[in-house]
């Protein structure tokens, strides 16, 4: 059993100072770059983007787009987590199924997201496209990690459960699931980022009606650069927000498994 020794945490005032410094530094770089380029239709400054974003916030279409995109991406992500976990359980149990499924999921992992979007665009409705693409991008990640976690389950603990006649349900709950957690939790955090990027890309290419992606596509079409930037800012905010929520949730889960999740 190993312990990591880390440097003592910085005091709060230092952390606030560093945070503020970073928050000022990058917009300042952006501002300087925009001033240097001096072509707002190519690179709008942070001020113009903020004004546009504020204007968009006052429209129903903005909130509708945010809500729908969020819903689609989260639905695709959640479906991938559930399916990936179930699939991992089955492929660990049945070797034949693993032999069939594993190459397919490896191929999915290697195929560029744009290829999937273009292919899926032909086969399914554009409303479904972002969710399906997010699902396809996250599924192999979750499956691979959960399968690895299941295979790494300590055989000695499983032996203990067997001798003590712990029921299969309790063995899963108390031994197998906690063993999978250190593999599943990071995969979920990484997967959420994948889901957002691929989901919005699918909205842009698939022109999904009323979505953030469609608004971005139209802004690009009419060279409305401040608007394109404003939608991008929204994506970043939503992505960070949902990641923070997920991290909070996972921390609560991790508290139940202090030793395995570190």
């Amino acid at each position: 059993m190993t312990r990591s020794i880390s440097a003592p945490e910085r005091p709060l005032w230092q952390r606030i100072l560093v945070g503020c410094g970073v928050a000022i530094f990058w917009p300042a770089v952006w501002y300087a770059l925009a001033a240097w380029v001096n072509k707002p239709y190519l690179l709008p400054g942070p001020q113009a983007v903020a004004v546009t974003l504020f204007g968009l916030c006052r429209t129903a279409a903005f909130w509708q787009a945010a809500a729908l995109s969020l819903l689609r991406v989260v639905a695709g992500f959640a479906a991938a987590v559930v399916t990936g976990c179930l699939l991992a359980v089955l492929t660990v149990r049945f070797r034949m199924l693993r032999a069939m499924i594993a190459p397919l999921l490896r191929i999915i992992r290697c195929v560029p997201v744009a290829s999937f979007i273009l292919l899926a665009f032909i086969w399914i409705k554009s409303q479904m496209l972002p969710g399906v693409i997010a699902f396809l991008m996250v599924l192999p990640l979750i499956w691979g990690n959960v399968e690895k976690g299941l295979r790494q389950t300590d055989v000695r603990l499983l032996e203990l459960a067997r001798v003590c006649r712990l029921s299969p349900g309790r063995t899963w709950l108390h031994i197998r699931i906690p063993s999978v957690m250190p593999y599943l939790l990071p995969a979920m955090t990484t997967g959420l980022g994948f889901a957002w990027k691929s989901g919005v890309a699918a909205e842009v290419i698939g022109h999904t009606a009323g979505s953030i992606g469609q608004h971005m596509y139209e802004a690009k079409l009419y060279i409305e650069m401040p608007e394109l930037f404003a939608w991008t800012v929204l994506i970043v905010v939503l992505s960070l927000g949902i990641e923070a929520l997920l991290t909070m949730l996972l921390r609560r889960v991790a508290r139940r498994f202090p030793e395995v999740t570190g």
Partner: peptide, 11 residues
């Protein structure tokens, strides 16, 4: 059983 190793669930 008590095995040679303690086999306690770490979590």
């Amino acid at each position: 059983p008590v095995f040679q190793e303690d086999r306690l669930l770490p979590w």
